Measured scan of single mutants.
Amino acid sequence: TTVVVGNKKYTFDNPEAAEKFAKKVAKKLGATVHKTNGTFKVK
């Protein structure tokens, strides 16, 4: 599962961990999490 934050990509074996990370980053940046085909995008 990939999490994309700006131009950085983070890969997780565990989708739950990926989602948690994405939400944490989004909260910090005041952004939102978008899920597309198993990829979480923070923007």
Rank of each mutant, 00 (worst) to 15 (best):
K23M: 14
T1I: 09
D13K: 10
K9T: 14
K9R: 13
K43L: 15
H34D: 10
H34L: 13
N37C: 08
F40Y: 09
T39K: 08
K41H: 15
T2G: 05
N7Y: 10
T1K: 06
V25Q: 05
G38R: 05
A18S: 02
L29T: 05
A17N: 09
V4G: 03
K23A: 08
K35A: 07
V42K: 02
K8P: 01
V4N: 06
T11D: 08
T2P: 06
G30P: 01
N7D: 07
K35V: 13
A17K: 12
H34A: 07
V25C: 08
V25F: 04
V25S: 03
E19G: 05
T32N: 06
T1V: 12
L29K: 03
E16Y: 10
L29Q: 04
T2Y: 14
K35P: 03
T32H: 07
V25D: 00
V3M: 02
F21R: 01
V5I: 12
G6D: 04
F12K: 01
T2H: 13
K23T: 13
K27F: 07
E19V: 06
H34T: 14
V42I: 09
N14P: 02
K24S: 12
A22M: 02
K41W: 15
N37S: 05
K28D: 07
A17L: 13
E19M: 08
F21D: 00
D13N: 10
A17F: 09
V5Q: 01
L29H: 06
A17I: 12
K9V: 13
K27R: 09
N7V: 10
K23R: 11
V3Q: 01
N7S: 12
P15G: 08
T1F: 13
N14I: 07
K20R: 14
K9A: 10
A18V: 00
K20D: 13
A18D: 00
K43R: 10
V42W: 01
Y10G: 01
V33W: 06
A26P: 01
K35F: 15
T11C: 14
V3P: 00
K23H: 14
A17E: 10
G30N: 09
A18E: 00
V42G: 02
P15H: 09
A18Q: 00
T2S: 10
D13V: 11
L29I: 14
T36E: 15
T39Y: 15
K27P: 02
V33S: 02
V42S: 02
E16Q: 13
V42Q: 01
K20H: 11
K24M: 14
E19L: 13
V5S: 03
A22P: 00
E19Q: 06
A22K: 01
P15W: 08
K24H: 12
K41G: 07
K24A: 14
K43N: 12
N7W: 11
T1M: 08
V3C: 03
V33A: 03
K23P: 00
K28C: 11
K8F: 11
K8C: 15
V25Y: 04
G30I: 03
K20V: 09
D13I: 11
D13P: 13
F12Y: 04
A22W: 02
K23V: 13
A22Q: 00
T39S: 15
T1Q: 06
T32S: 08
H34V: 15
A26F: 01
V4R: 06
F40T: 06
A26K: 01
E16P: 05
K8G: 05
F12R: 00
V25P: 00
T2W: 11
D13M: 11
F21L: 03
A26L: 01
K23Q: 14
K35W: 14
T39M: 15
N14W: 07
G38A: 05
K41A: 14
A31E: 04
G30V: 03
T39N: 15
Y10A: 02
V25G: 01
G6I: 06
H34W: 06
T1L: 06
A17C: 09
T39A: 14
K8W: 12
K9G: 06
N37Y: 03
A18G: 06
K28A: 14
V5G: 00
A26G: 04
P15C: 13
N14M: 07
K43S: 14
G6M: 08
T1D: 05
K35E: 08
V4Q: 10
V33T: 03
N14A: 07
V5W: 04
K23C: 12
F12H: 02
K43M: 15
V3Y: 00
K27D: 09
T2R: 08
F12T: 00
G6H: 08
V42F: 03
V3H: 00
V4H: 09
F40W: 14
K41M: 15
V5C: 06
K20M: 13
N37P: 05
G38D: 07
P15S: 10
F21A: 02
N37D: 13
K41L: 15
V5E: 01
T39I: 15
K28P: 03
V3K: 00
T39D: 15
N14D: 12
T32M: 07
E19K: 06
T32V: 13
V42H: 02
V4L: 13
T36G: 09
K9H: 11
D13G: 11
G38E: 05
V3G: 00
T1N: 09
V25A: 07
T32W: 04
A18M: 01
V33L: 07
G6N: 06
Y10F: 12
T11I: 14
V3N: 00
P15V: 11
T36F: 11
E19D: 05
V25K: 03
G30M: 05
A18L: 01
N14E: 08
F40I: 15
A22F: 02
H34F: 09
T11N: 10
A22C: 02
K8M: 12
K28I: 13
T32C: 12
H34K: 08
D13H: 09
G30L: 03
T36I: 15
G38Y: 04
G6W: 08
V42M: 03
P15R: 08
K20N: 12
H34Y: 11
K43T: 15
H34C: 14
D13A: 12
V33D: 01
F21V: 03
V5P: 00
T11L: 14
V42Y: 01
